[in-house]
Design a binder for these strands. Structure first.
Lengths: 397, 397
DNA sequence: GTGCTAAGTTTACGTTCAGAACAAATACGC
DNA sequence: GCGTATTTGTTCTGAACGTAAACTTAGCAC
């Protein structure tokens, strides 16, 4: 109701549509933009011109060979960048991500122990200072996005609880903003992973999708509802790992029993395979053909419990597809038929048969892309907001 | 991306904002509209003028007594109506609902047996014919909305399965459209109930809310996500009743075991109270103080299982509030402390403490309001779409 | 080289909203 | 009862924006 209006709001929308198209769907010809945005050639020309003047896009010669006047390619300017930070139990990963989703740099800083908030800030500041030359080549550094493994209030930027980091009731946005001298946004890591997969990954193009990620810390996820990420009242939505599946099951650190993540669990999987916790990456190799029975049994058990959880979520969300990442992706790969069949059969009235199960497409860049995307959001909806820091729209090589 | 643009799209948005405000928030002064819609007096004047010419709103003299020029009240024209139909196992209920949410008429036609689709259509046609005089006084009859207790594909208007009605894979929109000679839309009853409660009921004003309704047929519900109803890929979202809570529990008619609606169940409640199934309405009276232990135990058991289900949903959606209707509302009323405490404690990290539990505010009119709302949706987003059937904007009494 | 085709560019025009100036309608103070 | 302050509706002008049509450009095909 209280949305802006006026004729320049229309311009904002159209600038947003063009920039978002260039960002999400890669370099596009102007002619394609005309179709995609449902605007005339003249308007697209004006919009691209303005975005170009703002330094947000640049044009290159046409690539296609075709009859008729060539239509230049419109690129999102990858020199407009966001910083992305992912503090984790054993490392702080910092990335530089350009508009268009390109990860220019990814620096993983291993820590001897679980980093405190101060340490995470200091590490980030040090890494970013090391990148200063590189960042000087960027047209804009829009801000920093934080992917935090825990409950993050996206409005206030306060971490309510990040159990594995030991952070609680801590303002994370403030310290990073002050240390780096740029706007900061924070959100739950799995929520940002959902965002990344829905834009550049396996869920690209789907308007109703779910993402679940399994790691040593448990199971997190997120939902895309009508093309928009599900945030909830404060950004805490998507805690699929604490869906109770068996009220009389194993106790969970959350205080309840039989949560999805106590039943479907990386640790248990590594145990039966005989791997150390540090070898999570090798899990997939260890799950080749000809597995001993106890391993098969555990995979089967976890697959079946996971299917119950997914079926519940299908009943709740009626999604078009579900993306599985981390060891849940390994589970899917190791016995896709079983999981697919169980998810097809679980939800009521065969609703599950219409759901596609896909493995996550983005790898180590997932959280960096997602965190950067959270920073880009404002620019994408209000391209003119960058005007204050306007520079010449230098076109890269 | 493929949204329309152009300057008259802006007008559409603003007309929609004004009409929606009048519809949802009752009669408003023009001055209030200026604030709510963030538009100038001149623009609001033009918009109200156009809506008035379209017959969608009318103005009356100012009601408030205050310094300054009086600002006229803008009313959504309640003579612009939608028909609403709710076929159920023992009756077909037909309603006439005006813009603004007023239920002008509600006619419950009891059936001897479960009505077939043809019977439901014929009953509706007969009832509507009987209302012809009344409807002739309406400026517009926009269409008919169908609240169906089952899985409804909202895009195609096909009922995939309505177990209690025995309908399956049946196009319901077509027959109603043809029989009544007006546009028809169909959706799941609980989804429409969610819509109604979120606009005119207990969830009004909340952008992230859940609704769960319990009846003899089971538990259904819906979600409001960011102010918008959650539909899912095909409109099947919100089947909360078939969330598996105990995989080794009682078998459910859906084929699985331990679904929420097999554990939290009206029939079991009536059994311990000693009431017949037909007496569901008297359930609340029977649950006064001083209940025998077996009744208390069953109430407690169902409350605790319900709390698990609600906690799961809080983890998933992070809603601001949850609305409970039907016998779930009775459960809430009978032991609000227990349920509130359990929902506060269930979700991770005290997320539940921020969730309000409310009983549904709309009574017998719930589904009629919701079904009508589904019809109004198009008019509210595109007020000019009514132009073809334009008439004089007669103002009621 | 000529013609065809697709697309960028320019221009005239219509729609829409904001803002300012003005008019209207009411309460309040005297 | 009258003037003033206040609030809001109304009218008019100007600016922003997108569309449509005419024109121009650039490449392919023959």
């Amino acid at each position: 109701m209280s949305e802006r209006s006026g004729t320049e709001d229309l311009r904002r929308r159209n600038l947003s549509a063009v920039l978002t198209a260039a960002h999400r769907y890669g370099p596009l010809t102007r002619a394609t933009l005309v179709q995609r945005c449902n605007l005339t050639r003249s308007t697209i020309g004006a919009l691209v011109g303005e975005l170009s003047a703002l330094g947000l896009v640049y044009e290159t010669d046409a690539a296609t060979v075709r009859v008729g006047r060539p239509s230049p390619m419109v690129h999102a300017n990858e020199r407009v960048v966001a910083l992305a930070v992912n503090p984790d139990v054993d490392a702080v990963t910092v990335g530089v991500v350009g508009l268009g989703g390109t990860v220019h740099r990814r620096i993983r800083y291993n820590t001897a122990s679980v980093p405190s908030l101060d340490e995470a800030v200091n590490i980030t500041r040090a890494v970013v200072e090391g990148l200063s030359v590189e960042l000087a080549g960027s047209t804009h550094v829009l801000g920093v996005g934080l992917a935090v493994p825990g409950l993050v209030n996206v409005d206030s930027g306060v971490v309510r609880l990040a159990p594995h980091l030991g952070w609680s009731e801590a303002d994370v946005v403030g310290p990073f903003r002050d240390a780096l001298g740029m706007p900061a946004v924070a959100a739950n890591d799995a929520t940002l992973g959902t965002l990344a997969e829905s834009i550049f990954g396996a869920a690209a193009g789907y308007r109703d999708a779910l993402y679940l990620n399994g790691s040593a810390s448990g199971i997190g996820g997120g939902a895309i509802v009508g093309g928009q990420p599900l945030g909830g009242a404060s950004g805490y939505a998507g805690e699929f790992g604490h869906m109770v599946i068996r009220p009389d099951g194993e106790p969970c650190h959350c205080g309840r029993r039989g949560c999805l993540e106590t039943e479907v669990n990386l640790e248990r999987l590594l145990d039966v395979v005989g791997l150390d916790h540090a070898d999570a990456e090798q899990l997939e190799d260890a799950l080749g053909p000809g597995l001993p029975f106890p391993v098969l049994r555990e995979i089967r058990r976890q697959t079946e419990v996971l299917a119950i959880g997914l079926s519940n979520l299908v009943n709740v969300f009626n999604p078009q597809m579900i993306v599985l990442g981390g060891f849940l992706g390994v589970l899917l790969a190791s016995d896709k038929e079983r999981l697919s069949a169980a998810v097809a059969a679980g939800p009521i009235s065969g609703l599950g048969t219409e759901v596609r199960l896909e493995r996550a497409a983005l790898g180590v860049e997932l959280l960096l892309v997602g965190a950067a995307e959270a920073v880009f959001t404002r620019l994408l909806t209000e391209p003119r907001s960058v005007a204050s820091r306007q520079e010449s729209g230098v076109r890269p090589s």
